[in-house]
Structures are given as C-alpha cells and as structure tokens.
Design a protein around this nucleic acid. Structure first.
Lengths: 162, 162
DNA sequence: GTTAGTGCAAACCTTTTGCAGCTCT
DNA sequence: AGAGCTGCAAAAGGTTTGCACTAAC
C-alpha cells in the first residue's frame, strides 16, 4: 500500500522503477528500520548478487531527494554513516542509547509545537526536521553504575578501602 | 570566563592544557560558531603554522567527550563534515536554509518539554539532544518562486504560453 | 623523568564520479 | 532509438591510526 504510493510518486517524476529499485524500496519498507547503506546493500546483495553497492547509494539519494525516505545520523553511534527510514509515520524523535545502541522513537506534541513555532518565528518553510537524543536507557543506567563501581574498585586494588 | 571553566574541567581530568589546545579552545569560543574541523584548522594554522590538522581532530574529539563542545551536522548542507559549537548557551535547535545555508538558532519551550517528556516516558537519561530543521528561509522562499517561474518559462520556450 | 600529546605519513571508511554497456519505454 | 540506469573501477572527502619525537607536569 505504502509501496504503491512510492511507486506512483517516482513514476510521476519520470523515474524508472527498475528491478534494483523495487528490491531496495521493498527492503527499506519491510525490514525493521534504520538501515544504513551498507546494511541495505548486504540485504539486497543476498537476493541479487549482481546488485552493486553504488546502486544502493544512488537509489538512496534518489529516494531522499524525492522525499520518500528520511536520512538519520543516530548520533553517529556506530560511525559516520547515515541511516534511512521510509517517511511513513508521523514525525518523531529518535532516542539512542549510547551504551547499547537501542533506538526508540518518540511521538509527542512538543515536536509539532516546535515545528509551528519555528515556522511562525522565522517565516521559515520546513522541509525536514530531525531530532536525535543521546543518553542512557533505563537498563544501561543500572549497568553503568555497576561498571563504574567495578572500575573504582579495580583502581583501589592496591590500596583497598579501609 | 567560559574559557576558565573549560580549562578547569580539563585539568581536573588530568588532561594537559597544551599551547595547541588553548589556541583551539580560544578560537572555538571567540569566532562565530559552527566551525567544522577544516575551518578550525585553517584559522588555527594561520596563528600557528606548525599546528597539524590531526591535532584539531584529536582536540575536537576530546572536547566533545568532555562535554565542552557539541557536534552538529547542520543537515549536511555542505558535505558530510561535522560542525562544533561550545556548550555555552541554553539548548537550542538549528534551523538551516537549504538554499542559502544560513543557520538560525531557535530557543523555545518545546525543546525543554520534549526533553522532559522523553526522560519521563522512557526513563531515559539524556546526555545530548540535537534538533536540526531544514527548509527555506523567508528570503529564499521568494527567490525559489522566481527561479521556478524562470525555469518553467525556459522549458516552454519553443512553445510559449498562448 | 614520566606520561601525555604532537606531527607526519599512511591508512581507513563512507560516499561519489567517469565511463562503457545494458534496459526500459 | 534514445534517455535513463547499472556495474565496475577508481577517486574523493572526511577522519583515524602507528610511530618516533617533543613538551607538560
């Protein structure tokens, strides 16, 4: 259904819906989100071993320019690559745990309010908005405390606490 | 004043305040914000021709890890480099015009509200938050309309509007 | 005097480009 | 037929690393 819309959108711009592009678009929509170019390439390459990494980059660029996918950085948790997600849902922020890498999505009115205020305040026409939040998830906050305690103990090994 | 705090913060971590680091920190604080590594390098290099690009990268990494500077992407308007600003002011969003590249800063309560909601909703401990908004500034909206009109006319040159 | 930091060169990773051949329409 | 697209190889842009030398504490 979503895929249909995408296809229409591309066709209307005189962009060819080749076998490779269908594959990539499908994978982006199906597979859990936040794939980077390399990840998408690996998935695609399993299904079509001839498909080239360059085609992935070119297709992602195309979809991004066409407004069909959004580009994310996810706080560069793993490196400097970009991640992509289909522009399906409502606007949301990405919340990334800097310890375990888990990504949560947050929907909420502050995002819409922010958008409206920026438009009003600057007379700005918003095309893309991206909010990324980094920190520690509930689980990793606990883990970190343990890690810190362990590290402190390790340090005072030769001079144990009285 | 700000510089002092930064120096203290570094010293307390046993990090040496070398000539190069002082220079870079000063430049980051003085010069208008949103410098990327290369821009900072060029500024620094004029004052100390021996200072190496690598030192800039290493120092930026250090300052980022120490929470003294924030890293921005600015929607990758000019490329895939990162930009840096000292963590002086209150939290703000960056609003980037995708035509002229101008960067505005937006302060406003939606940002704090968002932060509080995310913390409450996920039990998340936020370390960094980044909001970047891309689109067209008031001025460029007008320019774009003119450009579009001109382009349309160019296209229909051989077949002018009746 | 130690330990941390610098400079230099070279490597690295991600992404882009040039070009010849292939493929949709 | 012809514009658009792909694959391959090679280059580019941004950043990191290994190592010997230097400087801060």
């Amino acid at each position: 259904m979503r895929a249909e819309a995408a296809r229409e959108s591309l066709k209307s711009k005189g962009i060819r819906l080749t076998r490779q592009r269908q594959l990539l678009l499908d994978l982006l929509e199906r597979s859990g989100k936040h794939l980077d170019a390399e990840g998408l390439y690996r998935l695609a390459n399993q299904l079509d071993p001839k498909l080239n990494r360059v085609t992935v980059y070119r297709t992602l660029k195309l979809l991004k320019e066409g407004g069909l996918v959004d580009e994310l950085d996810l706080m560069h948790f793993e490196g400097d690559q970009h991640y992509y997600e289909t522009r399906s849902k409502q606007e949301h922020a990405h919340v990334i745990c800097l310890r375990c890498g888990k990504v949560e999505e947050f929907f909420g009115d502050p995002l819409q309010k922010l958008r409206r205020q920026v438009e009003a305040h600057f007379g700005f026409q918003i095309l893309i908005a991206r909010t990324e939040i980094g920190g520690y998830c509930a689980h990793c906050q606990v883990m970190r405390e343990q890690e810190m305690a362990a590290a402190a103990e390790g340090k005072s090994q030769s001079k144990p606490v009285a």
